[in-house]
Design a protein around this nucleic acid. Structure first.
Lengths: 346, 346
DNA sequence: GTTAGCACTCGCTGATCGAGACTGCCAACC
DNA sequence: GGTTGGCAGTCTCGATCAGCGAGTGCTAAC
């Protein structure tokens, strides 16, 4: 296998230059171009020697003999880990984001939709946004609406004005009057608790009449198990952007990717694994477990609604992307989203 | 211009054969194939003469000299209007649809999502589903949740368990207790009315204390104007299916289409124009006002939740599609969806 | 009106060729 | 030893061209 070589200074600079040039041109970069554009002090022959070494150690590859060099996944990895310079979003981009969010509705869904939209726009890639995970969100309000005698619509309003709804079937017919009474009772007991806390304190809900007790247990059970239902929701936007990238001229690659996006479940599991402590996580090419992402990179981070509610936001694009810029912009949108979702704010 | 020729019997049969063959093979169909596969009694020379006529009258075209014939938009139009034989969905397809809906959640959104999914799957095209228009839906339940002192979450439960939510800003701080009281009051007065009726009877809402009166007016106003907000929501699914069609190998066509799908607004206005009295509406190629749909056909129909709530459902695909089959399947899913959405049912 | 025959057109395929872009290597140089 | 100029070799890409096959339009005969 390839040992984890530490590259000397000049090799680093050359790798960096190859990545920089390749990301903008999309064309394999040769020794002459490098000498002319980035290393006027060196001859192309010298650079050729270095390039050969970098190919040997697995940081670069050449599509065929007598072609320029292209970064490998390993090369990109080295670049983002050690060579990438921190960028910050331009004023123009900041303005775009700000304006987009200004026209967003105040609901969580609306904000996330706008976030996906603007992120796709400014990164020119596909954006991904997971719905917040609500395991630990505090409950603000509960409402019960009778749909049919034995079926109830349970409406939960959580912190951050996140609304969850679910139809619950009951064992016996229950009138709206009874439901309203139960809702009022639940609201007194439930307010400010998380679903987990609620579940733990189920026994303290007071010895009501037995039939109500049963119904309430059923409802609480629905509340606590609720989060599993919507977990796999992943918003995305900007598929049209991919078509502009030359790596997707053959539609077969696009097809795998679209399948992934449209079914969502597999994607959701990838996004859930994003660490919350890290700033921005980058997954490059074959580092992805999913084969459909073999030639794609993910740039992901998390957003917060408050300390307890979090989601993932990021983009997916070809491995050949302007990582520094994308990282800056993903971070920008993540921050702006968190800001808007702050329950105390606005 | 081309006069609306009435085709004689044989020309009709030939046009029909060309459409049928081209739809499945995707290759321009020549006189020999037609003679061999569809008209054993006729020679290819005879058919050539007829084909030449059909080209002259604008029903067929040839991509270049010495190529077979391909239907024009006009040819397809004649086909669907006069030649297409009614098909019905196969048992396999029916089973697929049934199974898909069985696993659907009971909410309107969930059902529509599943409808989009299964329609895309069985037609191998992109499916479109508009959210129901609720102008005339009866209100079942109203709830008010205090978010901040001066901002209220208004939750409307409509017939068919359709839930609408909206944040309303108030002129003065109002406690949750007051809101709950108002909600209870509204529920008594509002239940079973449509938004329009409610608006008309605003004055009859009883002379409450003035400050509450003001707030309630504000809320009712929000209810009645609400429908405009979500009007442009168009679900779609199955973009991946398009990639399998040879007409989308060049991505430029796909790009226009994706733009249309992802922004949605223009699409929504097209779908809204679908007549409710007609069974299934078919729009072919350049009949579309939108240039992005120049080479696509739409097969659309409506679904109902009850007499007052309706939406549009259908597919979009290349003009070369198996119209008879697609019509049957769109109709099937529309019926199944309406069935599931019936408020009295399930 | 139908048909067989035939000359003609045109796109597709595959082969060939030259240009251009790089490389790898070698020998000379600092 | 690292660096450099020079040069032969390799490979892709695009253009060109011929041959093939599919299919047509036309004409003359039935």
């Amino acid at each position: 296998m390839m040992e984890p070589t530490q590259l000397d200074e000049r090799k680093q600079q050359i790798l960096k230059a190859v990545v920089a040039d390749y990301t903008v041109t999309g064309v394999p970069v040769g020794s002459q171009v490098l000498a002319a554009k980035y290393f006027i002090a060196l001859s192309s022959a010298t650079i050729r020697n270095e390039l050969a070494d970098l190919v040997g150690t697995g940081y670069l590859q050449q599509p065929h003999t007598s072609a320029g060099r292209v970064p490998t996944d390993r090369g990109y990895r080295y670049f983002v880990d050690f060579l990438m310079e921190p960028e910050s979003a331009s004023p123009t981009v900041r303005r775009t984001v700000k304006q987009a969010f200004e026209s967003a509705p105040r609901s969580v869904d609306g904000i996330l939709e706008k976030a996906a939209m603007v992120l796709a726009q400014i990164t020119e890639n596909v954006s991904l946004v997971t719905a917040p995970e609500v395991t630990e969100a505090r409950i603000k309000h509960v409402d019960l609406v009778s749909l049919e005698p034995q079926s109830v619509l349970l409406i939960l309003v959580l912190e951050g004005n996140l609304i969850k709804q679910q139809v619950v079937r009951l064992d016996r017919a229950t009138s709206q009057e009874d439901l309203s009474r139960m809702a009022a009772m639940l609201n007194r007991k439930v307010k400010g608790q998380t679903a987990d806390e609620l579940s733990a304190r189920l026994s303290q809900l007071g010895p009501d009449r037995d039939e109500q007790r049963q119904i309430i247990e059923r409802l609480v059970e629905s509340i606590t198990t609720h989060q599993a239902m919507r977990q796999s929701v992943v918003l995305h936007d900007g598929v049209r952007n991919l078509l502009r990238h030359p790596e997707f001229v053959e539609v077969s690659r696009l097809e795998e990717l679209l399948e992934l996006l449209e079914q969502g479940a597999q994607l959701a599991s990838i996004l859930q694994q994003v660490a919350f402590d890290k700033d921005v996580e980058i997954i490059i090419g074959r580092e992805n477990t999913s084969s459909g992402l073999r030639e794609c990179s993910l740039v992901l981070t998390t957003y917060k609604m408050d300390e307890r509610v979090r989601g993932t936001i990021g983009v997916i694009g070809p491995t050949r992307m302007h990582y520094g810029q994308v990282v800056a912009r993903v971070r920008l949108v993540s921050q702006a989203t968190s800001e808007l979702l702050r329950p105390s704010g606005n």
